[in-house]
Design a protein around this nucleic acid. Structure first.
Lengths: 243, 243
DNA sequence: CAGTGGTCTAGACCACCTG
DNA sequence: AGGTGGTCTAGACCACTGG
């Protein structure tokens, strides 16, 4: 009951609820800042923050002098596609196989361990609630029995509670996520790095062999859904595309 | 002041200037919000906006109760578009400089050397004519005197005969190409690799440090125009973007 | 023109970190 | 305990859009 949740977050969620429920359809204008401020009993600056953040997350679009509109559902416009490693490997190799290394739940207590604080920053504004949970899976993807990708993924349990019960040696994590949530926003980073020891071993590479790290953070309707580190052996993997 | 630029932008730029000038080094704390507010003669909320945006841009890191710190600067680049390294570096660093390492012409005889056969495959269907020529340029791009990119580029002389006469320490190769030929198609590849010795030296990195290689092949009206290898230090460069 | 978002103020209370 | 960022208020003026 007692919400120590910041007002701007309550407003963001309320707006998202309205969008999700279909009350505010894509392309239509939502109430003006001043109206929302009155409705929620807060100052306009607080509403402004909520709306501005949803704009940054591409849930809303604002036009000065005109209004604030619900953004159109966006398809994948030729940016980095959400790649499916299973399909990619099947295109280039004869045989694809996934080996699940770990599959576990991080509860409130685990999230409060210092080594997991960076996850809280990504998922829970650094302040996990007692009910917050993350699922973690580590999967090695093989092409013709050669490791191609080490996938280290965290998933917000509140959004996809059933994620942890899947058999990811037969179901691809990306496929499962795409089927169960509309992924609408994310950022990624691609780096060349030396991989940690355990990753090197899983990928069957030497410690000094460059690895290609593809990290991605994905949100759906303003909520962080998943963060994933995808490590690839530099010698067996490259990232390609067309302009 | 009667400047038309918003106060929060002036403050952002002032902070960036201090970082670029080295006054505020990576990892050190910058003045508190209230201090900056007094210094700039604005309210704390205005400073808050400036600092919060720089945090979102990963220029600063904030810790509640502790302070605001200059983040480890890491170069970031979206690789979807045809990017201009000069512009990118100018956005991120104070000073951009290009050093031309080599600039030469490969004639029919040179193209028939075994070590150049792969170029023939890319440009001339493996069968160069006597009149076929390629230009080659090697350029190191610096941000604040730190090497960010080693550019090794080959250009089809038949399409842009005047390419070789340009001064690429002042003109960007991409700019020149875009201005002189309609680039309509290309493919790229991104790899993690150990760079050749000469590239390591030019980039001022150790031989075992992973490098991020971005290779691109561009065509215009069905004719191969340019092939380029762009090497980046893994420690100072990453590709990033949004979905 | 009236309504909207863009920006800004001068305060305030709180949670958190560090000495 | 004192300083820091996190949040919030109740106003304000401006620039822009639309009818």
């Amino acid at each position: 009951m007692s919400n120590k949740t910041p007002a701007y977050l309550r407003i963001k969620n309320a707006i998202l609820d309205n969008i999700h429920a279909g009350t505010w359809a894509s392309g239509t204008a939502i109430p003006a800042e001043i109206t929302l401020a009155e409705d929620f009993g807060v100052s306009r600056m607080t509403v402004n923050r909520a709306v501005k953040e949803l704009e940054a997350e591409r849930v809303l679009e604002r036009r000065q002098g005109s209004g604030t509109y619900v953004a159109q559902q966006k398809y994948n416009n030729a940016h980095i596609e959400i790649r499916n490693i299973a399909k990619d490997i099947n295109e280039r190799f004869n045989h694809y196989r996934a080996q699940v290394i770990a599959q576990k739940t991080l509860d409130f207590e685990a999230l409060n361990q210092p080594e997991n604080h960076w996850l809280n920053a990504l998922f829970f504004h650094s302040q996990p609630a007692h009910t917050d949970k993350l699922y973690q899976v580590c999967i090695v993807h093989y092409g013709d029995d050669l490791p191609i990708q080490y996938e280290d993924r965290w998933v917000n349990a509140a959004i996809i509670p059933d994620f942890i019960n899947q058999d990811f040696s037969s179901i691809n994590t990306s496929d499962y996520l795409i089927d169960h949530v509309p992924l609408e926003y994310g950022d990624y980073q691609i780096q060349a790095k030396l991989a940690p020891i355990n990753v090197c071993e899983a990928l069957q590479i030497q410690a000094y062999e460059p690895a290609l790290l593809h990290a991605r953070h994905t949100k759906s309707q303003g909520q962080p859904v998943t963060f994933v580190n995808m490590w690839h052996p530099g010698s067996r993997f490259s990232f390609g595309g067309r302009l």
